[in-house]
Design a protein around this nucleic acid. Sequence first.
DNA 1: CATGAATGAGCTTTCATTCAT
DNA 2: CATGAATGAAAGCTCATTCAT
Lengths: 211, 211, 211, 211
Amino acid sequence: MNLDALDTVDTRDPVLKDLIHKGQVTDPHSAKGKLMRAAAHLFKSKGYERTTVRELGAAVGIQSGSLFHHFKSKEEILLAVMEETIIINMARMNAALSDSKDAGEKLHALIRCELDSVHTDTGEAMSVLVYEWRSLSPDKQKYVLQLRDEYETLWLNTIEECKQQGLIQHDAFILRRLLTGAIGWTTTWYRPDGNLSLEDLAKQTLLLAIK
Amino acid sequence: MNLDALDTVDTRDPVLKDLIHKGQVTDPHSAKGKLMRAAAHLFKSKGYERTTVRELGAAVGIQSGSLFHHFKSKEEILLAVMEETIIINMARMNAALSDSKDAGEKLHALIRCELDSVHTDTGEAMSVLVYEWRSLSPDKQKYVLQLRDEYETLWLNTIEECKQQGLIQHDAFILRRLLTGAIGWTTTWYRPDGNLSLEDLAKQTLLLAIK
Amino acid sequence: MNLDALDTVDTRDPVLKDLIHKGQVTDPHSAKGKLMRAAAHLFKSKGYERTTVRELGAAVGIQSGSLFHHFKSKEEILLAVMEETIIINMARMNAALSDSKDAGEKLHALIRCELDSVHTDTGEAMSVLVYEWRSLSPDKQKYVLQLRDEYETLWLNTIEECKQQGLIQHDAFILRRLLTGAIGWTTTWYRPDGNLSLEDLAKQTLLLAIK
Amino acid sequence: MNLDALDTVDTRDPVLKDLIHKGQVTDPHSAKGKLMRAAAHLFKSKGYERTTVRELGAAVGIQSGSLFHHFKSKEEILLAVMEETIIINMARMNAALSDSKDAGEKLHALIRCELDSVHTDTGEAMSVLVYEWRSLSPDKQKYVLQLRDEYETLWLNTIEECKQQGLIQHDAFILRRLLTGAIGWTTTWYRPDGNLSLEDLAKQTLLLAIK
DNA sequence: CATGAATGAGCTTTCATTCAT
DNA sequence: CATGAATGAAAGCTCATTCAT
């Protein structure tokens, strides 16, 4: 696996830099950080259950037993991947929102941001967040759910704002759910190296809500 | 688990009746059919990997070893569930299309049909089709993919027709992908016993494509 | 290991026969029963912690994984060994008591019975009961303790009876504890194939209490 | 764990002081000495196998890796605990014997001394000596056995002396074994903070041998 | 067809021990 | 001397699959 290609975390991103500096996100150059990236990659491509701790170790060049210096259990690795992904993307989303002027622009920014999150550096981790949900114990599911709720509030507020300005006909809650599905599913078919740019994809997605 | 409630296959459906009669779909009242329904339920709620053959056996009142008289392997059960689900829903979709007059009505019918497929009798099996994809061996993935391609052609043709009539602005291929995601994701949040009817949901979904 | 030698359970013993028949004790000729005997042997000679499930399996000619058809966990094997040992010996002790006429004879019978229990068929299991106590989880300790309490009551009642007849000077509770230690410790030094018969040893032990 | 309470080695004891001074026993205030006391405590309460080097380290405030600067292996710690315990108690026993006038008094002194050894400062280490015996490698078992033999000779000589004076009816060797068991077992039930004093317990124990 | 004991490979995790810093 | 990351062997246990009955 080439960890230095597309999947490398973009540490030039000032938002991410800040999170690492504040200790809310593991430094991607540390052993732990590398492990989490490798885990996101393997969990996405093989699934959590089918990924063994031996593979996880091999991916970062250590023995399986050594993993347990960094994480108490395999499940803790999954949790950490999910947790940090939400934290990073929520921070990015907040930054994007504060750069936007009107409601339509805000919705565009959120869509672009979520497409970025599933197709750039945190893409694999986002997939894991969606598809490996049931592999978490109920306790941990509850915890991650709390984080997601904060994230969803950003969306609902923005859609509501668009609606008050007559830009949107849908029920806000339903629209958000439909968009979540539409955007999430792009991981299964969109290829960043094809003809369609992420910005074009964002525009087509916005077109679902606003005509 | 109550196999006789909502989740029971609707054998009054003439399309399904016909498929069973032609031997293309296993009789849901046979031992094999019951097993497949139980499998769909367990695979959906627990995930394929986390479902053991013991549980599968217990769900239909036999020992794990006896499963292997009906299916060569656990994976064959997964495959059978996926295969029949596609066959059933493709037949239903063809039936719905032939009942529709114009292009807009056809698109509406497809959306309603796919929502039905994920929220009524084949709902759990459809979820399995989406979420347990990677649990199939490459060979079997390829086979199921062929079946899906036929199914997708129905969609693309209909969307193209709408576009030629100026009903749709999107690129057909992209719209289909976005709708696939939006509809599939409803399994995670839509509750048939809530305020929103499936027909209302279909209308809100259609609104993504046609305003 | 020769399971057919000294350590074989004496199935001619009518008391044991009855317990097996009533289902309170596992048939020593069944797979489960053989496993328990092998476990008692290994747990005694190597200690519970140092005995691996692989060794346990090898001792009865099966794979380690197959153990878990008979017992849910390694600890369950330990518990079963302890439990049945107490049940068997309590039954034997009750039988011996009902054969005795006066209090002194009863005490003699109890001592002989306990010496038998640690030096004949259940000997290894008795050792396990004493030495592997801490390897049980607190829950299971509590359960075994209850069984032991019934057993101890037989002793205390008999000693008290002796005391009322002026045969004994000791405090009953303390004497029982001292005798428990003295008898239990014989496992570490007494050899049944030496000069000293078990009956002689019983007499010397009785001499600690009654002169 | 409070190492400074009851369990502290009694360094006012002149016999112990002398052994430390002669270098036969580790200074209990040194790092190594503290470790040995902590080990005795943990080995007694959890068992040798279930005590990890991490816990051992934590108990004296160092990392597990640092233990190996003081001891070559975990087993060496066990050996050291056993070895010093025998040395200390043999010295104390010799001192007690030389304070006694007649044979009966000597036997009383030995019993009291051994009860002290299992219930005061070396108590936990003595338990370890008895219960963790099998955790030693055969080589080390042999070595500790030699030390024990010297210790046992003191007992046998004293009992023989009593017997020649008609104080005792038992066979000397058997009596010693019975007493070893009776005294050793007191660790499982005797509580120094209860109604029974150690001196009373010693008298009741002497009563087993001499009436 | 059904059973259920057995397989055997593979799993996650533990842990004494090593060693560069 | 102390650290703590890493080792690597071994542990208990799981589970799809087989097969004699």
